[in-house]
Write a protein that binds this DNA or RNA. Structure first.
Lengths: 152, 152
DNA sequence: TATTGTTATACTCTATAACTATA
DNA sequence: TATAGTTATAGAGTATAACAATA
């Protein structure tokens, strides 16, 4: 007979609702900084490295190039990002955070993360907190193919 | 000066894409059993306890009562669930898993979880696996109000 | 001809409102 | 009248297709 498997809920069945609930809880924090979730995602992405096309940006944050345009337009008109044609190839846009954009992003992220820190501190035993965050970071850093791999 | 905060990505920014990727990777497994994600969610929910109204079921799995109807109809016509009017109040439906429904659910869940187990075994150090699962279970079991609590 | 960004269109998913049948 | 379930309609979010500018 097969080895007994300790019963647990499916990973996805835990991750997805938790992610949704957390997102919903954090939207008001973003709103205080005038940011939608997509706008915030853009600001976070531009933090990592300056980007050389809107399509590349869209793909890297899981959006698509058509629906990110109005987000970029709004951010640009607020002065949070700059969007200039690449002199080398004027079809593509160079996207960068402005100092003000950097400030707003940091303020928003600080609000988000300090709330998350309180949440973790309040509900998770200290011994689980670091392993949880480390494991989550590991899994979320996996390329999507890792999860789809049929040989897994 | 404020204490240095070890930089990390936002919790939600890790949870949501991971949940999506995992869901996408698992959809084909469900499809092999003829199940959509919502149908699977229904079967899982009916496992826990027999339910006494479609609206209650819908709410408990994060759907709404209108869009769950066709899912229930399909499951019923396949003989995976029974849907009978409550004799005490013929407006409400009593929802229960049939033996065949239980069989299909177990088969699907077994496929899902054994894949998840392989994923965890492959990418997570053994010392992190249990703490990760335990912490995730804890957080996902929190009532949504816990996350929204302004006093947190 | 191919590609970036944009605009326009279609589609899917979800939410709201109206309807029926019971109570 | 009020509620469970259903059906019909509307809306938001997303994806697809067509277009203009540049290469």
């Amino acid at each position: 007979m097969a080895a007994a498997r300790e019963p647990r809920r499916d990973l996805a069945a835990m991750l997805v609702p938790l992610g949704r609930a957390l997102t919903a809880a954090e939207l008001p924090l973003l709103a205080e900084h005038g940011l939608s979730m997509w706008a915030y995602a853009v600001l976070l992405r531009l933090e990592a490295e300056p980007l050389r096309s809107q399509a590349a940006l869209a793909e890297s944050i899981g959006a698509d190039k058509t629906r990110i345009i109005e987000v970029l337009t709004a951010l640009e008109s607020r002065g949070l990002i700059s969007r200039t044609p690449d002199p080398a190839d004027r079809r593509v846009r160079l996207l960068a955070l402005t100092p003000e954009g950097s400030r707003v992003r940091d303020a928003a992220q600080s609000a988000i993360q300090s709330r998350e820190d309180r949440l973790l501190a309040h509900y998770l035993p200290p011994t689980q907190r670091t392993p949880f965050l480390t494991a989550l970071a590991t899994l979320s850093a996996l390329p999507p193919e890792s999860l789809t791999d049929p040989d897994l």
